[in-house]
Design a protein around this nucleic acid. Structure first.
Lengths: 331, 331
DNA sequence: AAACATTAGGAAACCGATTTCAAAAAAGAC
DNA sequence: GTCTTTTTTGAAATCGGTTTCCTAATGTTT
């Protein structure tokens, strides 16, 4: 492996000077820099990130944590789309991404420890923010941003769930739907916002609301079951599902009941991930802009790391209502 | 930050001894070890992975590379499921996972360089193995394993695609299907195996085969289009799609043509990812065992790194034919 | 009791960078 | 031509571990 010492020897300059030249420091003659860079190129120099991290006390490495209530893993398609965008942006700033994990560590500090061991510069969290493990990380000195986090421990990025839910429900009401059933995800910041939106839409329209019933995110089977059970009881004309994935389960249940979407029941969901485009009819949904979200998360985290930005205000990203085939006016 | 020097000072032993105690080296008195470990615990010692990597010349860090022809990103659900399992296994062996990328680097060595810079111990590849960038990596000194790779540069892990495709087609033939259309993915090792299986099934059954037509992996829109175009021409009684995701597109096309699955056309696909369970009717498929695949990839890579295993034979993982609602006998 | 083998622990070099500080060289001022 | 200022460069310390080699201490054999 070629080191700066090899370059120093061959070029006739000292290692320190080589380092400065390589890093574009002020105070290196441009002719010297040219020579050093040329020698480095010739010899096929590869910097050693670990050596750099050791001395510089940061690693140019970011952690990504998936720690969700029901699935501890990566298999959440919607989050992966955000991560993909996050990666694109951070990569352009020379950061790498490492998956965070508890490893063999037990105890509430597992994630924090992992970050310290690897000297991670910051962390992107997709998490169950009420868990001790995630709380511990958020309270640590390590810069963190959280998707769908609302609170004052770290800055969060979130779609304007309240506003868009309200608008969607108002639209449905306008279309003649009054019996709108909202199957929600498990209780968290996002669910809360959406429920407020749902309630306020009815309030604003001066109509009686039907029901919010707690289901679960990313669980088509549960939504299938609950839809099968609740439809006969409540006779909704429209159903809001917690996400596209769950909506697929729900729609299958409706089909099994002999109902047609959207002729008998209108259906809408949240996220607008790839799943929502594969159903037939296509799903009406509150589309969360994964690109904007990923970019916002990345840029905020980098600002925190590089500029010491310590503002923890929520960053809201505008979502978009996509009215498609799965909803019909019943006037 | 607490270092081994802090522990050395407080415990009265030398730093070298502390290191040995912490790493369970031979030649440290058990009482000494106990004391040192106790002091380390008290002081809240966190090792520094970068310092260790620098001296030890390896990082306990593995790279994962997604470099596919049509999508350079993470949004391939099926691969994510494998990665998830890979992570579970490697984590238990104290390895971390870093996403590989080209970063700003141009040139064919981009990935190799990235590995060297981070001193990655090995790499898991999901790739277009014909691309220069991936080839360069496979030819390097860095231990690599590849999912769906067949060749002699690195060991690959693959489902028994030939065998299971053949069995599936034979089963369909038994069910009375003779006009079986196979929409394949783009040309690669896997596609080749499956096409062989398709051909041999017909050969074995002594029947005339209909057609293999090249489509694309993970592209529901293309499969939708091609199905719409080819169905009227070829009038298949069964269609094999390149993967679940694509099959969804194909089934939508069939529905648009006014055809029912499985009453008018039987449908099957490969992978058996989460997508295949969400369609209605459920998809018959060659299920690839993501857990076994992820485990095989992880264990092989770790053996290569830790034991110098340099056997490059293909590792075949048994797939499973899941006959469900989307196929019907037409006798 | 002498000779030898084994074990425990310490000192120091090393991994490959970064960064500070001082010296040397060049440029500018008078 | 001397003195001051600025620019370049190098030497050396440092980051936090690992590992080799050596000495001292203890245990075993005869």
């Amino acid at each position: 492996m070629i080191t700066i010492y090899d370059i120093a020897e061959k070029s006739g300059f000292a290692a320190g000077t080589v380092s400065k030249a390589l890093n574009n420091y002020y105070g290196v003659n441009s002719e010297t820099k040219r020579k050093i860079l040329e020698v480095a190129r010739q010899m096929g120099y590869t910097p050693n990130a670990n050596a750099r991290a050791l001395k510089a006390r940061h690693s140019y490495n970011l952690g990504v944590l998936f720690y969700l209530r029901d699935s501890l893993d990566l298999t959440q398609h919607f989050f992966i789309e955000i991560l993909n965008e996050f990666k694109r942006v951070t990569e352009a700033h020379d950061y790498d991404i490492t998956m965070l994990s508890k490893g063999k560590d037990l105890g509430a500090e597992a994630f924090v420890k992992h970050c310290r061991i690897r000297q991670l510069d910051g962390v992107l969290i997709f998490g169950d923010y009420s868990s001790d493990l995630v709380q511990e990380l958020m309270r640590s000195e390590i810069p963190c941003v959280g998707f769908d986090y609302l609170g004052n421990l770290i800055p969060g990025v979130m779609s304007d769930n309240y506003e868009k839910t309200k608008q969607l429900v108002l639209k449905l009401i306008e279309m003649g739907h009054e019996r709108i059933l909202f199957l929600t995800g498990e209780d968290n910041f996002v669910t809360e916002e959406r429920k407020r939106g749902y309630a306020d839409a009815f309030r604003q329209a001066g109509k009686e609301r039907l029901a919010c019933v707690r289901a679960c995110y990313s669980n088509p089977d549960l939504c299938n079951e609950m839809t099968a059970k609740l439809y006969p009881e409540l006779r909704p004309t429209a159903i809001l599902f917690p996400d596209d994935f769950s909506a697929i389960g729900g729609m299958n249940a409706l089909r099994q009941l002999g109902l047609s979407v959207p002729d008998d029941v209108s259906v809408a969901s949240f996220d607008g991930s790839i799943f929502s485009q594969l159903t037939s009819p296509r799903l009406t949904c509150v589309y969360q802009d994964v690109k904007k979200i990923g970019t916002a998360l990345a840029e905020k985290l980098i600002r925190m790391i590089e500029e010491g930005d310590d503002n923890k205000d929520l960053i809201t990203v505008e979502a978009e209502i996509r009215m498609t085939e799965s909803c019909r006016s019943i006037r």
